[in-house]
Write a protein that binds this DNA or RNA. Structure first.
Lengths: 189, 189
DNA sequence: CCCGATCTGGACCGATCGGTCCGTACGATC
DNA sequence: GATCGTACGGACCGATCGGTCCAGATCGGG
């Protein structure tokens, strides 16, 4: 092979696409713009990602990996304290929501932005959201509280409410309100 | 005038467009499809609505009117009981979310679906959402609770959480969980 | 030095969509 | 019955987007 393909190119493309996808929306960003931002030809992009759907899938996969790692790190050492772990999970979401440049949860954004959320990225986004929900369910179950479904529903409302209200919310303090709400819910049980 | 324009045609077009917009998404529905569903020519549609944006605006306006009326009706007679009015508002949202054919809040859907939410329909959707938020703020203020901001934030989390989790939520009981949550929040204050 | 493969950049194609325009038919008024 | 405006249906236009392909430049291996 006279000139091997640069393996860093794929990362460069994915990084550029990720930034554009997240800040401006997936449908609003065309492949031409991604190519221009990545500084490569369309040929190379389509060699690494055979379609826009595959590129979006890779974008969501990478974000899911980061989110899962953050969540795992947030609850490490709290295996014996599911209540504290639930607060940590809530705080992790609150930190993300309150961070500069937050433009909504990318998985929820995808499901709302696309016309057909049953394609491969849509199914993946759904499973990622449900994975967080299952994490909450498992921690609530480990608490041994009565009516675990109700407790999990309420915590989930706080998490979904944070994700939903942050993009156009006037009060950035709403995220910290959610943490306080979850703390009180758990303290009362 | 040999043949007067039928004033019912505008309603027919708006009704057909509303159904399509809500069930399938605004961007996913083209003007040709609306024309076919309304049973009229493109000419007539563009006479009543000079652009798709105007048609969408009329669609959102009508829904906002219905929502405002429902909210007004839900709190009528509860002027002296802001706590009960807050529960009624929450229950109204819960009923809508749990209703058959619910596909998300149309205003929030628009903001997530469009690439530029700062156009006329986007600004209107934002004001409509903020109107509900102000209604919650006003009722909480009328309660005279300490830390009204925190209370309003928490109730708002429940409302946003309902709207957000309903479209892909596995547990339709989450809506009733939200009503119970708001009831307990108010009872504790 | 030359060959081959990859790179960039852009022209190009087909499909879709918003919006305009045209040909035809209908129906009310004179 | 002649006329004029409306309604219908569809052809058409320009723009955009995903995806393909081509031309020329670049660089490593024989």
């Amino acid at each position: 092979m006279p000139r091997p393909a640069d393996p860093a190119t794929r990362d460069r493309i994915l990084a550029a696409a990720s930034r554009l996808f997240y800040t401006r929306g997936i449908r609003a960003v065309g492949m031409a713009e991604i190519v221009a931002a990545a500084g490569c030809g369309k040929n190379v992009l389509y060699r690494h990602f055979p379609s826009k759907e595959e590129l979006v899938l890779a974008y969501l996969h990478r974000l899911a990996e980061q989110l899962d790692d953050s969540m795992d790190a947030a609850v490490v050492g709290l295996e014996k304290m599911p209540s504290a772990a639930l607060v940590a999970v809530t705080r992790e979401v609150a930190d993300r929501v309150a961070a500069r440049g937050f433009r909504g949860c990318p998985f929820r954004n995808y499901l709302r932005e696309m016309r057909d959320p049953s394609d491969a990225p849509g199914r993946f986004a759904l499973t990622e959201i449900r994975a967080l929900r299952r994490r909450v369910d498992g921690l609530v179950a480990a608490m041994g509280v009565e009516e675990p479904d109700v407790m999990a529903d309420r915590i989930w409302l706080a998490i979904e409410g944070m994700y939903a209200s942050a993009p156009y919310g006037d009060r950035p303090a709403a995220a910290t309100s959610a943490v306080g709400l979850v703390q009180e819910l758990l303290a009362a049980a």
